[in-house]
């Protein structure tokens, strides 16, 4: 028998393989960030429930705050001060979830609201990505203690500065490179790239897809939104890549770098903020895909999934209004 906590728990399980891959490629930052975000989310939720005079135990134990925290930390740099995930998770709970009335009533995806608030509030911290293992041969990851030390005190081992540790992400590199009149195949040959996407990223994304397939298999999500999102990204990507492969990155690169798969399987499928009918979900998903591609290609940000999801969240009531299934026996 399924229930809301069971659904939430399954989503967390489905993220485990990707979390393991993330930890292998980027060090323990994800785990530290998740702990901080989870605590902040639970505290924020407990506070609001207290202010609203609602029983706290059932809402806190439903697991939805943990899912929000988990999705948020996949989107932020692994090596980052503790208040970045903490603030993001608290904002996700306070602004995106409880201002709208709590679980089931939020218009926007809480994790994406948290991420975008972080992106516009702390642009510097949010762009300080470290390279993945094997992305840069001279590079050595910080250990757990050094990582913790940086997170909570901002201090790095003596000889290091943060700028020495960070690198541009694959999406950033490609965006800047193309703007600098370089060709995609040139950029593609760099050490940041692996077999089909960003090195390291491609494997994390593979494991995210595995988790997504598990959710599909368990019936926790349905295929309509993931397929529509991926089609929405891949269709324009393929067409433009075939037209001009030097100016436009390959569809494989779009799929396996950045948040395409995480968005398709875990973020756009959040039922609360998604459209409800089958037709509505196809429209909703495809629009997210196309918008993501458009923002990546012509917008100011290297990845556009969060903005695409939030834009389409706002369009959901409209989509629902016009895609209601025809009732049996009515014309």
């Amino acid at each position: 028998m399924t229930s809301v906590p069971v659904v939430m728990r399954r989503v967390l399980y489905a993220l485990l393989p990707a979390a393991a891959a993330h930890t292998w490629y980027f060090g323990t930052g994800l785990v530290i960030n998740f702990c901080v975000a989870a605590i902040a989310a639970m505290l924020a939720e407990a506070l609001v429930l207290r202010l609203r005079h609602r029983p706290a135990r059932q809402s806190l134990s439903d697991g939805s705050a943990l899912v929000t925290a988990a999705l948020l930390v996949f989107a932020i740099p692994p090596l980052t001060p503790w208040w970045v995930p903490g603030f993001g998770a608290a904002m996700a709970m306070l602004l995106a979830k409880h201002l709208y009335g709590g679980l089931g009533r939020n218009l926007f995806n809480p994790a994406m609201v948290g991420y975008v608030i972080l992106l516009v509030s702390f642009p510097v911290e949010m762009t300080q990505w470290i390279p993945p293992r094997m992305g840069d041969l001279d590079y050595e990851h910080l250990g757990l203690l050094a990582n913790l030390n940086y997170s909570f005190t901002g201090r790095l081992p003596a000889e290091l500065a943060i700028d020495a540790l960070t690198r541009a992400t694959p999406l950033d590199t490609v965006k800047e490179g193309l703007r600098g009149m370089r060709t995609f195949s040139e950029l593609r040959a760099g050490s940041l790239f692996g077999d089909f996407g960003g090195r390291g990223w491609e494997w994390i994304n593979n494991f995210i897809a595995v988790g997504g397939l598990y959710l599909l298999y368990r019936g926790t999500i349905r295929w309509h939104i993931p397929v529509a999102v991926l089609a929405g990204i891949l269709l324009p990507a393929t067409v433009l890549y075939l037209l001009d492969g030097n100016r436009f990155p390959s569809p494989g690169f779009h799929l396996f770098s950045g948040a395409a798969l995480l968005g398709a399987f875990f973020i756009a499928t959040d039922p609360v903020s998604a459209a409800e009918s089958v037709r509505g979900r196809l429209i909703y998903g495809a629009s997210i895909g196309v918008l993501t591609y458009a923002i990546r290609t012509w917008g100011g940000y290297p990845d556009g999934l969060a903005f695409a999801v939030l834009l389409m969240n706002a369009a959901v009531p409209l989509i629902d209004r016009y895609t209601r299934p025809r009732i049996y026996g009515r014309s």
């Binding site: 229930s3 809301v4 906590p5 659904v7 059932q58 439903d62 709590g102 679980l103 089931g104 009533r105 349905r222 039922p271 609360v272 998604a274 409800e276 009918s277 979900r281 209601r324 299934p325 025809r326 009732i327 049996y328 026996g329």
Partner: peptide, 18 residues
Amino acid sequence: WPCIRCGDCGSACPARLL
């Protein structure tokens, strides 16, 4: 629990209601 709009009810409804 609160409704999470999963839509399973809509898929199960033989009258195709929401």
